[in-house]
């Protein structure tokens, strides 16, 4: 960028900011519910300041250069906060694109008469702002991915609780599809809990598992065998009729695993094994 245009942009920083703010506020997609106008202004101002300081540099188009890192940092910070706040990609993109429009407009006003100069300067600004918007998008998507990853982790954590239903009896309701990674977590949680509570019976309730294929059955058998190795007994409960049909049709042998139709019958079985009895107290009429 020529010294002149460079100096010009520096002097017109205020104008650009005003124009940019006007563009942003005029935009129909402005999200006043997510970000206040004051905050938007301070974000914009910070970015312009960093940008204009760097315009004088030699590496004008090379964004990998060190001198651009503050600008990219600010832009990345803005993109990530926006991803977390729930801005759409379009709104985030418009943030940078409206800045480009503002700069181009100022250039057009200031460089009059010299068409070829205006053209070259606009071209440079275009190239710069395009690479900056690519950076914004990259960071935005990265931020979104982080959010998704965190949620996935949370879901796997939440969805495998081990419940102590009785002294010595654990229940583990499985909800959702059972894949290898999940089986691993379920198995580890269950075995750890068996050790901690000294339970001798574990009930694996699969009423929340949508489908059982040979792979899922294999995972279940693995969990049951591991529990047996630890010295506890494992009962599979909550087998729906459709699942029973599929299992038989697939030719999966569950004969050496104790299976019960419902959690209630599994619990009743566990009580029998542990020689416990649940009795109804006879209501004696008071004298």
């Amino acid at each position: 960028m020529s010294q002149k245009a460079n100096q010009l942009l520096k002097n017109k920083k205020k104008n650009i900011l005003e124009l940019w703010m006007k563009n942003q506020l005029a935009d129909e997609g402005l999200r006043e519910d997510l970000i206040s106008n004051d905050e938007l202004r301070s974000q914009s101002e910070e970015l312009i300041n960093a940008l204009v300081t760097n315009l004088s540099g030699e590496n004008f188009t090379n964004l990998d250069a060190d001198e651009w890192s503050p600008v990219i940092e600010i832009l990345g910070g803005i993109a990530i906060t926006r991803a977390r706040q729930g801005f759409s990609p379009r709104e985030t993109g418009n943030f940078v694109f409206s800045l480009k429009e503002a700069i181009l407009e100022v250039l057009q006003q200031e460089i009059t008469g010299d068409q070829s100069n205006l053209y070259t300067e606009s071209q440079k600004i275009n190239r710069l702002m395009d690479s900056l918007s690519v950076v914004t998008f990259e960071t935005f998507i990265k931020g979104r991915e982080e959010v998704i990853l965190r949620q996935t982790d949370e879901i796997t954590e939440i969805s495998t609780p081990v419940i102590r239903v009785w002294d010595g009896i654990l229940a583990l309701p499985i909800i959702g599809t059972l894949d290898s990674a999940r089986t691993q977590i379920v198995m580890e949680n269950l075995l750890q809990e068996i050790v901690e509570t000294g339970s001798s019976i574990a009930i694996l309730d699969i009423s929340g598992v949508p489908a059982v294929d040979s792979l899922v059955a294999q995972h279940l058998i693995k969990t049951v065998s591991a529990t047996r190795l630890m010295g506890a007994e494992c009962i599979i409960s909550g087998i729906r009729p459709e699942i029973a049909q599929t299992v038989v049709h697939l030719g999966i042998d569950l004969s050496n695993i104790i299976t019960k139709a419902s959690l209630a019958s599994a619990l009743a079985y566990s009580f029998r094994v542990m020689r416990l009895e649940v009795k109804k107290i006879s209501t004696v009429s008071k004298p």
């Binding site: 198995m187 580890e188 050790v195 591991a226 529990t227």
Partner: peptide, 8 residues
């Protein structure tokens, strides 16, 4: 637990 899982 880890040993049980390994054996399985």
């Amino acid at each position: 637990p880890a040993v049980a899982i390994t054996l399985i």
